[in-house]
């Protein structure tokens, strides 16, 4: 065949470049179908409106606000994420493109590509929901730096902890419910940390070193590294 090349010259290709190819393909597909974004954002916006409508910004007393608002914010973020983060893998299975992907891409590259895609979705989710939540609920934050760091590191942890679960449930039955059931216990430590961090940021507790952010970062690193090790086992054959 004239157009083909022998594959022995693959030295220049890295896991990263292959992962980026998968990431961009998912983004392109997502841009054209808005499959996952619609699910996540509509879920998030609906919940946000429900919370804001039923509670409003005056119902909760000043003293209770930092804690309760942090809880509400993270419940919205975590459950919106759980409603849509499995889409990228589930869609591969539903459109029966998974086998071709298994035959052409290295598992670690697939994991990283899907992780990047999920992190992009989470970034979009947080960019829309967090500012709206602050505005609608009149959320006063004393330490914006800590707050932003907590939201970002919490988002990375959400993606890092759930991407491998998404790959598993895509190959199982009863996918939608199973994703939340499996992910939630894994996410609980992260969620409790993030709530505490956001509460401290709102109150303005002076705690040097941002322990909550550090726990969230450690959680993300551990989950991503473990997933990279374990992913080939659930992806191949």
């Amino acid at each position: 065949m004239k157009g083909g090349r022998w594959i022995t010259e693959t030295g220049s290709s890295t896991y990263l470049s292959e992962a980026v190819a998968i990431w961009f393909r998912d983004l392109r597909g997502e841009f054209r179908t808005r499959y996952a974004v619609n699910a996540i954002l509509m879920f998030a916006v609906t919940t946000l409106i429900a919370v804001s409508f039923s509670i409003g910004s005056f119902r909760i007393g000043e003293g209770e606000q930092p804690f309760l608002y942090a809880v509400l914010l993270w419940i919205i973020l975590v459950f919106s994420a759980l409603s849509g983060l499995s889409r990228s893998f589930v869609k591969e299975e539903e459109a029966s493109t998974m086998d071709v992907l298994k035959l052409s891409a290295r598992p670690q590259a697939v994991f990283l590509g899907k992780l990047f895609f999920n992190l992009t979705l989470l970034a979009a989710l947080e960019l829309i929901i967090v500012p709206s939540f602050i505005l609608l609920m009149d959320y006063k934050i004393e330490l914006p730096g800590l707050f932003v760091a907590m939201v970002v590191s919490g988002g990375v942890g959400l993606g890092g902890g759930t991407t491998i679960v998404a790959a598993m449930i895509a190959q199982a039955s009863a996918r939608g419910a199973l994703f939340s059931v499996l992910s939630f216990p894994l996410l609980l430590p992260l969620m409790i940390t993030a709530i505490k961090g956001c509460e401290k940021a709102a109150v303005g507790t002076n705690n040097s070193g941002w322990p909550e952010v550090r726990i969230a970062v450690a959680y993300s690193v551990v989950m991503i590294v473990m997933s990279l090790f374990l992913f080939p086992l659930i992806w191949e054959e």
């Binding site: 902890g161 491998i164 679960v165 499996l182 216990p185 894994l186 430590p189 473990m226 997933s227």
Partner: peptide, 12 residues
């Protein structure tokens, strides 16, 4: 795989 992942989150 799930059992190992769950175990890893316990120290946190």
């Amino acid at each position: 795989v799930y059992s190992i992942l769950a175990f890893v989150t316990v120290p946190f």
